[in-house]
Simulated assay, not measured.
Amino acid sequence: MARIGEDVSERLDAVPAQLRVLVTRRPKYACRRCSAAVAQAHAPEHVVPGGLPTEALIAQVMVAKFGDHLPFYRQAEIYTRQGITLDRATLGNWVGRACFHLRPIVDHLRESLKGADRVFMDETRAPVLDPGRRKTKTGYFWAIVSDDRGHGGTSPPVVMFHYAPGRGAVHALRFLDGYRGQFVQCDGYEAYDKLTKVDRTEGPWTLVHCWTHARRRFVKRLEKDGSPIAEEALRQIAELYAIEKTVRGAAPDVRLAIRRQLSAPIVAAFRPWLEAQLSRIPKSSKLAEDIRYTLARWPGLTRFLEDGRLELDTNPVENQIRKIALTRKNALFAGHEVGTENWAMLASLIANCKMSDVDPVRYLAETLRALLDGHPKSRIDELMPWNFAPASSLAA
């Protein structure tokens, strides 16, 4: 029979993850004719001296927990299915040692963020085990983000997480110390108000409030009470977002011109409408509370009409802090405060990799190797996620 063609079909298959043993041999040499010292190549530095894991395995463990939200005990179960016995304490020890080596990267990341014109800021709970009381105590992760992509900026987006034992303004002030920008985009949490009274060389911070937080209140009222006032408020806010969608990524002056032409009239009419509705409804109602919340933050909500670099909401930081919440949901709590600080450090590095479209496993593995090999501190910027170029022969 003569071949007249063929049919080709493709199917997606799964190959189980493989663990391998890397063997390092270091021959010893001696001269038979003299008493010279024995010559041998130096042993390479490892994250765990004399230990089992390579940098790639430690990177996989770190990203699995802080990027893919798999607690150590679940990872230990996965390794057991593959015939490798690793308890969660061992995995935690590896991660702690890696964090020691990665600290210069995180410190430089923080310094890079301090030059941003404006930052987004938010906080979320961080339960920490309190052994003496046999229960958990509540700390907080504070997130600071710089993201200029909304107005066509070329600076790389940066996110930094910090751990603090509380939620007070003192922590926000401490984490923002040294920042040279003017604007902080945040929610309506009252602790941020103290930023406007800070004595800085650059002057007090200017707060830019979030339309998403105001919108959520009206969404809740519509869902619970079917309020027509809430429905109309949402319609007007939606008009602002529709305009904003058309200027996403445009230059600041273009954004500002369109906002003043199209958004400003909506905003100008929205406030008196809210005030009129407030006078018609019971002062003790939830809807009245929501309207008062919006009106009390009106200067911050309308600041986007004054500067094209500003955004309508704090979504860039909320999108980042949501990942912390997912890890928290699965891990329940951190074992101690040092572990929580390591959590913040690794979540920062992994989030920056994702924002820069970099594989976090490869980045952490090769960065750890570079640090162990003595990468000079004067060139630490080369190891930032946005400058990462895989050195591995397996690079795509």
Rank of each mutant, 00 (worst) to 15 (best):
P265Y: 13
S284L: 09
W386A: 05
A30D: 05
L295C: 10
K329H: 10
F175H: 15
C34V: 00
G92R: 01
F333H: 03
A334H: 12
F141N: 01
G139L: 03
P282Q: 09
R26E: 02
Y179T: 09
Y140T: 02
A351T: 11
L176S: 07
I291W: 01
I229C: 00
A250G: 08
K28A: 14
G115I: 10
P390S: 15
N387S: 05
V128E: 00
R3C: 05
R260M: 11
A268K: 11
L383V: 07
P127Y: 05
A257W: 02
R32D: 05
K245D: 12
R125G: 15
L195Q: 01
V8T: 15
I243M: 06
Q277M: 12
A98W: 00
R110P: 00
A169N: 07
E45H: 04
Y241C: 12
P299N: 01
R32H: 04
D122G: 06
Q236I: 06
V267H: 11
A269I: 06
G92V: 01
R33S: 13
G51A: 06
A37L: 04
G308I: 08
R25W: 11
I84N: 02
F333G: 03
R103A: 15
A164E: 13
L91M: 02
G226H: 02
A325I: 09
H151S: 11
A89W: 04
L346R: 00
K28H: 14
P127A: 06
A251E: 13
R280I: 09
L332P: 02
R297P: 00
M121V: 12
E45N: 03
A325N: 09
A64R: 04
D130T: 03
L295A: 10
S392M: 04
D373E: 15
R25D: 12
R297L: 11
W142H: 14
H213M: 01
A268S: 13
A395M: 07
Y189K: 03
W273S: 08
L278Q: 11
G168P: 05
A395D: 11
A36G: 15
V219T: 11
R103V: 08
E232A: 13
I78P: 02
V338R: 11
R292P: 04
Y241W: 10
R255Q: 03
R260Y: 10
K354A: 12
